[in-house]
């Protein structure tokens, strides 16, 4: 009965290889690597929109009142869902941008990009998830990779930038 508080897990290799099979399928189906990037980002967004409810229900997380809290929550979510603990770094002086530094990205465990896919953002599902999840808690953000181990960088750096706070939609006939 109490399944929603039971942090059920699955073998991360099943997850990694399933994601790999998806990326291969997209590459076969779609015209360009750009299209693949877009699809992965969109799927990530759809996942993020749902996953944030799961996160709130499990961690009884409250609303965030500044971006530092948001960063902490994202860090906790990476731990809860991917079993990794990215560090938070490279805050912009204005405090509206930060990075999640990922040491080991489970998505890329068995991956090496061929030269034909050099502009592919293999893990594009992650920034998509961040965007979808934040939007549901009224934060419009943009998110992208600054560094990627798949391209020979020492670390995978996921950037998150705050854009604006979203308001509840006004009921029709009022303003």
């Amino acid at each position: 009965m109490n399944r929603s508080v039971d942090p059920k897990k699955v073998n991360s290799e099943l997850f990694t290889l399933t994601y790999g099979a998806l990326v291969v399928q997209l590459l076969n189906d779609l015209e360009s690597v750009e299209d693949v990037n877009k699809h992965l980002d969109r799927m990530g967004y759809n996942i993020g929109v749902r996953l944030v409810e799961d996160f709130i229900a499990r961690s009884s997380a409250d609303k965030c009142y500044d971006l530092r809290e948001t960063a902490d929550k994202l860090q906790a979510a990476f731990r809860m869902y991917l079993g990794i603990s990215p560090s938070i770094a490279n805050w912009a002086p204005a405090g509206d941008e930060f990075s999640l530094m990922i040491d080991t990205n489970p998505l890329t465990e068995f991956v090496e990009l061929p030269d034909t896919c050099s502009n592919m953002r293999y893990s594009a599902i992650l920034p998509g998830m961040v965007r979808g999840a934040c939007e549901m808690v009224h934060l419009e953000v943009s998110s992208w990779f600054v560094q990627d181990q798949l391209r020979g960088d020492p670390v995978t750096e996921l950037r998150v930038k705050f854009i604006k706070r979203l308001e509840d939609s006004v009921p029709p006939g009022e303003d």
Binding site: K8, V10, N11, S12, F15, L22, L82, I125
Partner: peptide, 10 residues
């Protein structure tokens, strides 16, 4: 391991 919810959503 990763979370089952995440796998299910993927």
């Amino acid at each position: 391991e990763v979370s089952l919810s995440l796998f299910a959503l993927l």
